[in-house]
Structures are given as C-alpha cells and as structure tokens.
Design a protein around this nucleic acid. Structure first.
Lengths: 225, 225
DNA sequence: GTGCACTTCAAACGTATGTTTCAAACAGAC
DNA sequence: GTCTGTTTGAAACATACGTTTGAAGTGCAC
C-alpha cells in the first residue's frame, strides 16, 4: 500500500466527516476508522489534527485559487482597461468554484460547507492559515468589487460585502440540510449550481440597492440615526 | 447568595463563552470558573450541559418572541386587511430585536451570534428545542414574508429567505469584530442600529431582485441549468 | 436550638480525546 | 539474503471532558 493511498484515504474521510459534523466534533478515531487506517497514521503523516485540517483545505484551495486567478486574468483581459462589472466578477468566482475538477459529485458542496464552517467556527489556527496562504486572490476579489461599485461609499461597500459573505457562507455551510428540507417540503431537487444561480442575482441586487431606507418607513416607532 | 444569583451568573458566563467559542468548544469548567461558581452547579441547577444551552436561548428568546408577536399584531392592525409590505415586515423584526431590553450593550450582537451558531453547528438537540418552543412567531414571520412577496415562486422565496438569514446571522454574529475593523480602517463609528439600517435595504433589494441571471452573462463559459 | 429543604463544595468517576511509543511489517538497494 | 529507511500496528499515555457523589454549609420555620 503506497503512502499516497493512506494519505488520500485520510483526507477523503476527514473532508467528509468535517463537513458533516464540524471540526471539534470529529475525532481522529472516527476519521481513521472511516478511512480504514491506523489511528497513529494521522499524526505520522500530518503531525497533528490541526495540520490535517489545513491539509484538507489546501488540497482544494490551492488548485482553486490558481483557477480563480486565471479566471480573473481572463476577465480583466476581456474588459481591456475597463473594470469588470459586478455580475461579471461574481460569476467569475462562482464559475471557478463550479468548474473545479471534483473528486466526486458532492465535492463542491462538501467544500462550501467546510468554508462556511471555517468562517463561523472560531478556529483561530484555521483562519490564520487561510489568511497566510490565500490572501492574494482574496485581495484581488476585493479590489474588483471596489471597482465594480464606484457609486458606493467605502462604508456602504464594506458592510454590503459583509452581507454578501454572510449570505454565501451561511447558505453554503448548511446547503445539504437546506436542500433536504426543500426536498421534503416541496419535493424539489436542487444542485449546488442552481443555488449559486439563485444566490448571485440576490447578492448583485443587494449590493446595488438604493438605500432610501436609512429612515424607517412611516408609522414605525424608532428613528434610526 | 440567592439561587437566582448563581443561575444568572452561569447564564451570563455561558452566553458570552458560547458566543465567543461555540458550544462544543466551551467546557463547563470554563463557564463555572468565569461565573465563579462550583463546577457541579451547572448540573445541579440545569441538569446537563445541553439543558444549559437551551436555557441560554430561552432567556432571550421567550421575551423576544412576545415582543415580536406584539409588533406583528400592531403591524397587521395598521394595515387592516392588506398584507404588510416586505419593508414593513423586515422593520418590525429588526425593531423588535433592537428594542429588546438588554442586559448590556453587547446583548444583541451576542445573541445574534448565538443564533448563527445554532444554525451552523449541527447541534441536533438545539434545533429540535428551538423548533418546538418557538415555531409560532417563526411561522408567522414566514407567512408575512410570503404575503409580501407574492411574485416569487415557493422555491425562489425559500432560497432567498435563507440568503437573508445568512446575511443577518453572519453579520450580526461578528458585528463586534466588523465594527472594530471599520473603526481602525476608516475611522468610522457604527451602532447596531446603523448596521440594521444598512442591512434591511440590502435584504429587501435582494429579496425583490429580478432573476434575469439564471443564464450567466455573455462571454462566460458555463451554462447554468 | 432543632430540624429541614436547599445550595455549595471538593473530590472522584467513567469515558473520550489527541498524541506518543516501540516493535513488527514492508520495500528497495546492494 | 541482508541491511536500511519508511510505514503500519496495538497499546499505552496524559489530559480534558460531562456527570455523580456525599459531606459541609446556609437560611428559615417552628
């Protein structure tokens, strides 16, 4: 049994279990027994549980950030000089995610859930790792967003980006559960691509909303400064 | 030392620690030492750690759901017969949240973060508890949303509600950190009311977006079914 | 003051965790 | 075949967890 076999089996099992249950709620014993390898194999090959978590992210994120950089390059080239629109920028991101070669059909949604967990679970080491390793495509995406919404003040744009992040991370992090609910309630099947196709126009509309609302509607009791 | 003192100190400490670190990542020993009570006090007063988690939610959610019911009553009365608009419904919700009497100035944002965690961490017992205890105001809010967006299909509405939830829970759950960043970067102070005032138009715009976007913009490579 | 219900306390229990250890198995070079 | 570096295996380690126990302390009615 070659090394890579054990390593990959651990990564596969860890990825799925982390996505299902979260990081702290998944023990090394669950991972190694699902992967059918010895308990000590994780510490032997990765060093620690935290390092295993990083490896799970790196296996997806490293090729993804390369794909994303290419997509941004292509987009900027196609727009030669002019800044890409908000829709173009958002689509470049979602398409890069959707087009990533998948290990299996659940690959994307598993990974989206992991990204959502990374944001919501306060795993300090993980956030630090992600910031160190993948700051460049993130900064570039932020710059594109800025150029695509020149009408927004810095403060407005800042908050609306947070809103977008929230809607995305939250939805993706529970997309399996949400899909199941929808399946049971309305009998509708949904793919991750369809979710993305619904999410992008929602985000774009919110991002470009006119805020005629800083004063609450007539009849309400509280004046919002 | 009266009972209520110990109970409240435990609830205060638990609320803050859960919000900071998540449920599984917070041990009873952390809680009791922060609250300066004996370790056994939690099991004595609440029965178990899960029951403590429920109590933390109930302390906020019970008065809040009463306030919210009143706000909805008032709103529907004011609209006599006609369904309230989306903006009115969203404002009724946010105002009820903002107007809740707070134990301290961080009360709201702490609780928003807890709600976000409840959704993302797969704590089965918690979801079951919340569904059993607070299904009524939740269903009512959903009904109001439905009446305020008759143009949306059930599926569209379902997903957009998830997007709204996500943007709200995520933003509110990290609003302290986000406010700090904004303060340092741009030197701007922000209150929770102002965040709500920015969030509501974002949500309303997203909710009412025309989805002319189910086919990606010209020039993109992937057709999304 | 005595009795009684309620509350606190220190200590222990059983279990699960991440990690380490060290011998056994293995693979490839010579 | 023998040696060498790498990988696996079963077992143990130390630690942390939620929970339970039983004694000590507390406030109040009588």
């Amino acid at each position: 049994m070659a090394q890579s076999d054990t390593v990959d089996r651990i990564l596969d099992a860890a990825e799925e279990l982390f996505a299902d249950r979260g990081f702290s709620e998944t023990s090394l014993r669950m991972i190694t027994s699902k992967a059918k390898v010895n308990l000590a194999a994780v510490n032997y090959h990765f060093g620690s549980k935290n390092a295993l978590i990083h490896a799970v992210f790196a296996r997806f994120l490293t090729p993804f950030s390369a794909t994303l950089e290419n997509a941004f390059d292509e987009l900027e080239e196609r727009c030669d000089g002019k800044p890409p629109t908000l829709n173009q920028t958002l689509w470049a991101l979602t398409e890069s995610a959707v087009r990533m070669p998948q290990r299996n059909e659940k690959g994307i949604s598993i990974f989206m859930r992991l990204l959502g967990l990374a944001y919501t679970q306060s795993q300090g080491h993980l956030r630090k790792f992600l910031e160190q390793e993948y700051s460049e495509p993130f900064s570039r995406f932020m710059r594109l967003l800025k150029e695509a919404t020149p009408q927004l003040s810095s403060v407005d744009r800042y908050w609306r980006i947070q809103f977008m992040l929230g809607a995305t991370a939250f939805t993706m992090s529970s997309s399996d559960a949400l899909r199941d609910i929808l399946q049971n309630k309305l009998g509708v099947e949904t793919t991750i691509q369809e979710i993305a196709a619904r999410l992008v126009p929602f985000l774009a509309a919110g991002m470009q909303a006119e805020d005629a609302m800083l004063i609450p509607p007539v009849g309400s009791k509280v004046s919002v400064a």
